[in-house]
Design a binder for these strands. Structure first.
Lengths: 224, 224
DNA sequence: GACCTGACAAGCCCATGGCTCTTATCAACA
DNA sequence: TGTTGATAAGAGCCATGGGCTTGTCAGGTC
């Protein structure tokens, strides 16, 4: 009793001042803190305390606004995924009206900021590692991946209307895989090749997929 | 005192029987248990107790044979990486003497067992998430990736000797990225496309990289 | 200006994690 | 067969994590 009183009045430090924020502001701050934690310290280092310390709030706020740390990670995935999609969308819009330019912009944007970012990879690998475990994460993944693939497919069909549907589908999958693989490797180890080289490789693959290559070096002997 | 004695003589169950194994056997068992844990439960679920339970040993053995759980994960990465490299190597050897067949085998083997395995992806994403944090993991990654890329490059040069060095390098990087991207996606979500389709896409990319495509559908209008 | 509401901070509780330490067990050798 | 030393089991220790409770203060309301 008395000890409790003494503790409160003497030992314990005064409670920190705080300002009230709207729910949206707090949620967004927590989401951004989570993304930064994932990027900097990986899944293992992304704890409630670490996230809240970064967000500048006490650890109680996380469960106040989200249904636990897992739900916050899911929300972060949604947010980061939407941001990446928006960056690609913006690149397409800035490319003008020619669908070929739009396709090129959509592919090349993966190798410029803000998508080309090792921190983003760290966030992404954290999500990948959760796809198997958490069906919500799997659903978001399917949504994001399917969306970009469908966009590539429609652009391909717009550029080459006579392209068969199945070929367009496989071409979109191939281009996506190439971009993902290059992006993964360059984020893991940026010394292997440069972003410019990645863009050149994607450009070449795009032209090959469209059947419109223009290349000084090819082996003509085996062509039909 | 007496309680301690009673505890030991009456309450505590007798210590489990065990057999002595060589250090190699124990190490390998722990490594395999770690790989299974990573695959099934992700990094978060890969604890000392979980690993040792899977390996059928007590938790004290981990620190007895490895310098902590981090070192065990590094050893597991080395082991899994070596196993993947060995599988690719074996595929090449079984392909015969033609370097074109060898290249094809090396690429296609990524979409057959034992490499095409969602559990392996789970293990791999765990490693990717550690590349930034742990320089030992980064070194192993650079080693494995560089090795396969160099092999592809030498095969490309063997098939088309007149291919410029820089193009062979970029082609090897592109093929690796395509394979990695397809492998990643098919392991994450096997409903998007099939392993056969993945092999077909890789086959096509390989022929295009060699400048030896033979394709019924191409747009001839824009070719030089 | 009192007070009411609820967002917020602080810290407790229990579970789990990594690692250590002691003790028990086994196998090899004399 | 007894001795011995390395191997192994398992309890324990300390740190950390997540969730929750409790008390408090900011900002609006009458």
């Amino acid at each position: 009793m008395t000890e409790n009183l003494a503790k409160r009045s003497v030992i314990s430090k005064p409670r920190a001042r705080f300002i009230r924020e709207t729910a949206d502001v707090r949620r967004q701050a927590l989401i951004e803190a989570t993304a930064r934690c994932l990027a900097e310290k990986g899944v293992a280092g992304t704890s409630v305390r670490a996230i809240c310390a970064r967000a500048g709030v006490s650890s109680g706020l996380l469960t106040h606004y989200f249904d636990g740390v897992d739900a916050l990670i899911v929300a972060t995935y949604e947010d980061v995924g939407a941001r990446v999609s928006a960056a690609l969308e913006q690149a397409v819009e800035e490319a003008g009206a020619d669908p070929r330019d739009q396709l090129r912009a959509c592919l090349q944007a993966n190798f410029r900021a803000p998508i080309l970012d090792p921190d983003l990879l760290a966030t992404w690998t954290a999500f990948w590692s959760l796809v198997k475990t958490d069906p919500r994460i799997a659903a978001i993944h399917a949504d994001v991946y399917g969306g970009t693939r469908a966009q590539l497919e429609s652009l391909l069909c717009a550029i080459v209307p006579e392209m068969p549907q199945d070929r367009a589908r496989l071409a979109a999958i191939s281009l996506t895989a190439l971009v993902d693989g290059l992006w993964l490797e360059i984020c893991l180890d940026s010394t292997t090749f440069s972003a410019d080289e990645a863009q050149a490789m994607v450009e070449r693959a795009m032209m090959l997929a469209l059947g419109q290559w223009r290349d000084e070096w090819v082996d003509q002997s085996d062509r039909p």
